[in-house]
């Protein structure tokens, strides 16, 4: 599947800002195309899911890690990104332990 412009933008912004050792980004927009806020808008690239591993998360709470990601992507949120699930936000050390 071709990655869209927002997918690429999110990937680049997160890579530049957090130098992640793992960055798995999934475009789940098709799963939400019929939910109420999206219906009939024809909007694409609205829902993403992210797993990210970065040492810049060191010493930060989960909430702070989510805030950091949200802040890097604030332009995307104000321009139509509707939801970003962050299913993993760890440091490399935390990942190695599990």
């Amino acid at each position: 599947m071709m990655n869209g412009a927002r997918y690429i933008a999110i990937q680049k912004k997160l890579t530049d800002a957090l130098q992640p050792t793992v960055l798995n980004l999934y475009d789940d927009s098709h799963l939400h195309a019929h939910h109420s806020a999206m219906r009939g808008t024809g909007a694409v690239e609205t829902h993403f899911r992210l797993e990210i591993v970065s040492d810049q998360f060191e010493g930060k709470s989960l909430l702070q890690r989510h805030r950091a990601v949200n802040s890097i992507l604030s332009d995307e949120f104000s321009q139509g990104l509707h939801a970003l699930q962050i299913t993993k936000a760890k440091t490399q050390t935390e990942l190695d332990k599990t």
């Binding site: 989960l62 909430l63 989510h66 805030r67 949200n70 604030s74 949120f77 104000s78 990104l81 509707h82 939801a83 970003l84 699930q85 962050i86 299913t87």
Partner: peptide
């Protein structure tokens, strides 16, 4: 300073959205 809904507050303190509440 959080871009999405839902948002959970407990005793005035922001807890997070769906992912964090799940965790």
């Amino acid at each position: 300073d959080w871009p999405t809904i839902p948002q959970l507050y407990v005793k005035g303190e922001f807890q997070g959205g769906s992912d964090i509440v799940s965790k």
